[in-house]
Design a protein around this nucleic acid. Structure first.
Length: 493
RNA sequence: GGGCGCGUAGCUCAGUUGGCAGAGCAACAGACUUUUAAUCUGUGGGUCGAAGGUUCGAUUCCUUCCGCGCUCACCA
């Protein structure tokens, strides 16, 4: 019966046969009285009362036994077994169930709940209704869907077949809800700022470029929310945040997707120390709400999330972990030290960049438990205010967990003249060919010239946080539809 | 972008030191009215990722390309 190159032919034939028997294979609705899970939970009462229930779901397994048969339906809450026997249902209905309905189809069942000989809670079907005919076979029940590429390309199948997958995304959803609730409690307003922007900024990255036809103007997909959120601080919205997608036209790997989710928030009148406290409270709350505990492990590595989290200046961290005291070193001395430690650096990079290299090479990976690293060199922190006690440093921190960065925050630069000078430096770098240098943003400068209060701001990579909290090693595992290259025509089935 | 690895039936995987392409599950036909990866009997199903090359002969060897994974570089 199976013709070459047309495996699904059989399913089309069954669909035709169903229609020929006057059955609508795609009806409009079905009244569900009980989700699968609630039948299991209320099983004793339901068996006692013998009240019929109605349940609907996708058939994920089917076993025929002559004039009866078992099947499992999968709905959003779980699986429930149904039992269909010829002497309990209309004979025509039974024949359709037996011959034309198969794994993958959606089915509605009405009947009383009972317990089988082997003890499984089961619905004894009195009425059956085909709710949707499937034209493609699902992956097999035992080994499931393992192929990583297919799991990402056909996430809908992955979600049906691999039970842990839905859990990850439910967790991600709870994570974002938990952040929103926390921010509500802190008096924030959640806002939405433009994704299509005439100028991009707020980070150093290559943007996606697009074009508005009617206006005949180029537009960029945003690479950060920062500059618009700061405009809102100028506008008097003293606590704002946005959870949204940023887009960066860069490489794709285990931890990078071209579009990714960022939380950015800004608070007027506070400095980076306030932000540090808030980030700690936020993370602790999120872990408690989403995972129910502060006991966590990532890839088998236990993480101690118990606050307060250590705070260590970048220079102290290098002193402690690399046993190098870089304070007061000249660029030449730094280059010497880097060279001695096997780091190839260009002295032209400047002190800040070399200090950062030392940090990344000798410190970062060792920060397993949450650790705030503070007071970054000014050269590598163009958007942060200079440190109140040391003008070579900035009031900036990053949060590290398991060797990865989870937050980046500053006391924000709010001096419009200084900001203009920094933009001019970026424009100069751009003129020299730095494709990632920041563009001059006159409207942003105009906003800042009206006056921006002292402000603390922070960005948190939500996908990274989702990876940590769901113990995932690839960002694609926490994105429902991760970006992949074009599917080859030959690969399509 | 560089390096390494992978791509065989709808799914999960074997396999061919170069000689007619294999299994389990799924499907199809039949038996079976409380099964649990149901069982039993039988049947069909393949552009071996794509295109070139070497060869009497390529799914196998070579080259290029496509896709995926890991990794280095860059970034969040």
């Amino acid at each position: 019966m199976n013709s070459p190159n047309d495996f699904n032919r059989q399913r089309h034939d069954k669909l035709d046969e169903i229609r020929a028997r006057g059955i609508d294979p795609y009806p409009v609705r079905y009244d569900v009285s009980h989700p699968a899970q609630s039948i299991l939970e209320q099983a004793e009462d339901l068996i006692e009362s013998a009240e019929p229930v109605t349940v609907a779901g996708r058939i994920v397994s089917k076993r025929g036994h002559g004039k009866s048969g078992f099947a499992h339906l999968l709905d959003r809450t779980g699986r429930i077994q149904i039992y269909v026997r010829l002497d309990r249902v209309d004979s025509g209905e039974y024949e359709i169930y037996d011959e034309l309905i198969e794994v993958g189809d959606f089915l509605g069942v009405r009947g009383a709940v009972f317990r089988t000989r082997t003890g499984e809670i089961t619905v004894m079907a009195d009425e059956l209704k085909l709710l949707s005919k499937s034209l493609r076979a699902l992956p097999e029940k035992w080994h499931g869907l393992r192929d990583i590429e297919t799991r990402y390309r056909q996430r809908y199948v992955d979600l049906i077949i691999n039970p842990g997958v839905k859990e990850v995304f439910l967790k991600r959803s709870r994570l974002i809800r938990s952040i929103q609730q926390f921010m509500d409690g802190e008096g924030f307003v959640e806002v939405e700022t433009p994704i299509l922007q005439p100028l991009y900024g707020g980070a150093l990255a290559r943007p996606f470029k697009t074009h508005h036809q009617a206006l005949d103007m180029p537009l960029f997909m945003r690479i950060a929310d920062e500059l618009y959120l700061k405009r809102l601080i100028v506008g008097g919205m003293e606590r704002v945040y946005e959870i949204g997608h940023d887009f960066r036209n860069e490489g794709i790997d285990r931890t990078h997707n071209p579009e990714f989710t960022m939380l950015e928030f800004y608070i007027a009148y506070v400095d980076y120390r306030y932000i540090m406290d808030l980030v700690e409270r936020l993370f602790v709350r999120v872990f408690q709400e989403v995972n129910g505990t502060l006991d966590h492990a990532y890839q088998g590595q236990p993480i101690d999330l118990t606050p307060p989290w250590p705070r260590l200046s970048m220079l102290d961290a290098i002193r402690e972990y690399a046993e190098i005291d870089v304070s007061g070193m000249t660029a030449g001395e730094l280059a010497q030290v880097c060279g001695d430690r096997g780091l190839e650096v260009n002295v032209e990079l400047g002190r800040g960049k070399m200090i950062d290299e030392l940090f990344e090479r000798f410190v970062q990976d060792r920060l397993v438990n949450p650790t705030f690293i503070t007071d970054y060199p000014v050269e590598i922190s163009p958007l942060a205010k200079r440190h109140r006690e040391n003008p070579e440093l900035t009031e900036r921190f990053e949060l590290f967990i398991c060797g990865s960065e989870f937050a980046n925050a500053f006391s924000e630069l709010n001096d419009p003249l200084d900001q203009r000078r920094r933009f001019e430096e970026q424009v100069e770098m751009q003129r020299r060919g730095d494709g990632e240098a920041h563009a001059m943003d006159e409207d942003f400068l105009r906003a800042m010239e009206y006056g921006m209060p002292p402000t603390g701001g922070c960005g948190v990579g939500i996908d990274r946080l989702a990876m940590l909290i769901t113990d995932s090693t690839n960002i694609k595992d926490v994105l429902l539809f991760p970006h992949l290259r074009r599917e080859s025509p030959d690969g399509a089935t």
